[in-house]
């Protein structure tokens, strides 16, 4: 049975972590969650990113967040990667499977998955 007492335990466990974490997230990954994105399947893409970033132990380095319409509705779901000192990378027509590869190769390995980007994708 889930109880609020469990949340207290999560809080106690995270106390030290929170202090440690401040200011270290240098990659921001943003999912377009307007009507166009949601209708195209952004929800599972976002959930996969949250899940994989945690699974790969990247949560100190990567923040997953949401935004509105990016303006390329026909290419949704769109995922943008912002990294300090680097050009923004825009991934289009994303799926959960593609999101896993982006976490593995780009966020973890540092190599952009060109075939999924706005410039590299094929109709």
């Amino acid at each position: 049975m889930k109880s609020l007492a469990e949340l207290q335990a999560i809080k106690d466990k995270m106390k030290d972590k929170v202090i440690l974490r401040e200011g270290v997230n240098d990659i921001r990954i943003v999912v377009g969650m307007a009507t166009c994105g949601i209708a195209a399947g952004a929800r599972p893409v976002l959930n996969t990113l949250v899940e994989e970033v945690n699974k790969e132990g990247l949560s100190d380095k990567v923040t997953v967040s949401q935004t509105g319409c990016i303006g390329l509705c026909q290419l949704e779901p769109i995922v943008e990667v912002f990294e300090a000192g680097k050009d923004k990378v825009t991934y289009v027509k994303m799926t959960s499977e593609k999101a896993k590869r982006v976490v593995e190769e780009h966020l973890k390995g540092g190599k952009v998955v060109n075939e999924y980007t706005v410039a590299g994708h094929k109709e």
Binding site: L7, I10, K11, M14, K15, V18, V50, N54
Partner: peptide
């Protein structure tokens, strides 16, 4: 009220 300053979007909380 329980979590205080631990953000709701922490992976464990979600």
């Amino acid at each position: 009220a329980v979590l205080g300053d631990v953000p709701l979007n922490s992976y464990e909380v979600i």
